[in-house]
């Protein structure tokens, strides 16, 4: 881990009229660090994620990102072209619903290859080879490369979405409930895969989840949100093993034991 953060979040707030989306949130995210944002539905965690990933303009506050040139750029002072370029090269966004993040009517290979073509790769053979390699890494067999994701199971779609995001070697990936809506066994496989990839590629990630087990498995640090506010944050195992805030204690004690 280097000493400079990758993402600096300062006093981010989002209001919908009088209603709070999220309020006064600040943190730093370092290279290779996985931050989990947990809380129940409506706690503001997805609003926060969208504000960080430039999908939603915050009411106030700043988010700056250390670009590959080593300089911090305020995301909301960049041009839209720069932001969109960042989104499809240096960043990834894994949606809860794979159909939000995939092109359902083009083949798996083209889904993975799209970002490569978007950054100017013009060699079909190379693009296909890279796509094949990435399908392998997310455990999709090479003979499915020309199938459309419509023909894939939920778990496969989600793995395809991950490959599509990681193919350009991003440094920061946002994930919104990446295992939501999947069967438990499928979840385990996906989590393990994500964990391996994050390790292997040294990715930084911000993972929104309401599942504390997902947070424990994937993240180094976590933020617990309630009603748009951060009620507790810190080392993941400390927050889960020795929760301080009343709400966190309630959350942790509500986990079903198998």
């Amino acid at each position: 881990m280097t000493d400079e953060p990758l993402l600096r979040v300062r006093s981010i707030s989002k209001f919908y009229g009088n209603r709070i989306g999220c309020s006064d949130i600040s943190f730093d995210l370092y290279p290779g660090e996985v931050l989990a944002v947990v809380g129940e539905s409506g706690s503001g965690k997805t609003t926060l994620l969208n504000c960080l990933s430039t999908r939603l303009l915050p009411t106030s506050g700043s988010v700056s990102y250390r670009m590959r040139d080593g300089l911090f750029h305020d995301l909301y002072r960049m041009s839209e072209a720069e932001r969109r370029f960042l989104m499809r090269t240096d960043w990834g966004f894994v949606h809860q619903n794979p159909s939000d993040g995939l092109r359902m009517t083009v083949s798996a290979g083209a889904n993975v290859g799209e970002r490569l073509m978007a950054v100017g790769q013009r060699h079909y053979g190379d693009i296909r080879a890279t796509a094949t390699d990435w399908l392998g890494r997310v455990e999709i067999s090479a003979d499915r490369i020309d199938d459309q994701p419509r023909a894939f199971s939920g778990g496969m779609r989600q793995r395809l979405q991950i490959a599509r995001n990681l193919v350009t070697g991003p440094r920061l990936v946002f994930m919104d409930e990446p295992t939501g809506g999947l069967d438990v066994s499928v979840q385990a496989r996906l989590l393990d895969l994500l964990r391996g990839l994050v390790h292997e590629l040294g990715l930084s990630a911000i993972v929104v989840t309401h599942d504390l087990a997902v947070a424990r498995l994937l993240s180094h640090r976590m933020i617990v949100m309630k009603d748009g506010h951060v009620v507790e944050s810190g080392l993941t195992d400390r927050v889960l093993d020795d929760p301080q805030a009343p709400y966190t204690q309630l959350l942790v004690s509500s986990i079903l034991q198998v």
Binding site: R84, V106, S107, G109, A110, L116, R128, D146
Partner: peptide, 15 residues
Amino acid sequence: EYGLMHVKLYEDIAQ
């Protein structure tokens, strides 16, 4: 942002 245009051509070659 014209990467998508090549996606169509890619699909052609793949099929």
